[in-house]
């Protein structure tokens, strides 16, 4: 969670700038909304315009208040304390996200079972900061359980993967009951 004082003020400053840019971009895109006689007196762009102005104004307010707090808390360099953000812990959160992203990239290639097993092994090893045989066993068992639930029980057409399906003559979706959805799954997977 954010710490108080200069760290929070710096975070707020950065966030206010990001949201200000978001408001500007959103406002710019609002100008491209087509007009229509069916849109009523205020048109389809009225609410988006209002929202862009509101977010812009609030971002400015956050920026000013964060700036005031930042300058008030600013200390001489000899008295400055390093912000207490734990970079390693933030790294764990982001690493989890990247593992999830890697799984999505591997899914169309390796298929659901193998990619899920790799995801579970990698994320449990990352969170424990070392790789043990238990992680691989957990990955295999977990992926097997989820395969039974989603593919065999619920019939979700997860991609089997381009690598694993090369040798098989069956469909390229994992669900036996979803051959009609094979094409859409492959398209999505691609």
């Amino acid at each position: 969670m954010p710490t108080s004082g200069p760290t929070t003020a710096t975070q707020d400053l950065i966030l206010a700038l990001i949201l200000g840019v978001l408001a500007a971009g959103y406002g710019w895109m609002t100008a491209g909304i087509a007009s229509s006689v069916l849109a009523g007196p205020v048109g389809a762009g009225a609410l988006p315009t209002l929202l862009a102005i509101a977010l812009g104004a609030m971002s400015l307010l956050l920026l000013v208040s964060a700036w005031v707090r930042w300058t008030r808390h600013r200390l001489p360099s000899c008295q400055r304390i390093t912000p207490t953000i734990d970079r390693q812990s933030i790294g764990s959160g982001l690493a989890l996200l990247f593992i999830g992203l890697a799984y999505l990239m591997l899914l169309p290639v390796l298929g659901y079972g193998i990619s899920m097993s790799l995801l579970m092994t990698a994320s449990s090893a990352m969170l424990e900061r070392r790789l043990k045989i238990q992680h691989a066993v957990y990955g295999l068992l977990g992926a097997g359980t989820l395969y039974c639930l989603f593919v065999l029980l619920l019939g979700v057409p997860f991609p089997t993967g381009s690598v694993t399906s090369q040798g098989s003559h069956g469909g390229n979706a994992e669900s036996p009951s979803a051959n009609h959805e094979i094409e859409s799954a492959t398209l999505d997977g691609g």
């Binding site: 989890l96 899920m116 977990g142």
Partner: peptide
């Protein structure tokens, strides 16, 4: 242990998200 719980949840989330529209 927390790593196993979080991993199980991540696996469930990503599998569930695919179910919404069968889309990666």
């Amino acid at each position: 242990p927390k790593p196993y719980l979080l991993t199980g949840m991540l696996a469930l989330i990503l599998s569930g998200a695919f179910v919404v529209d069968n889309s990666i």
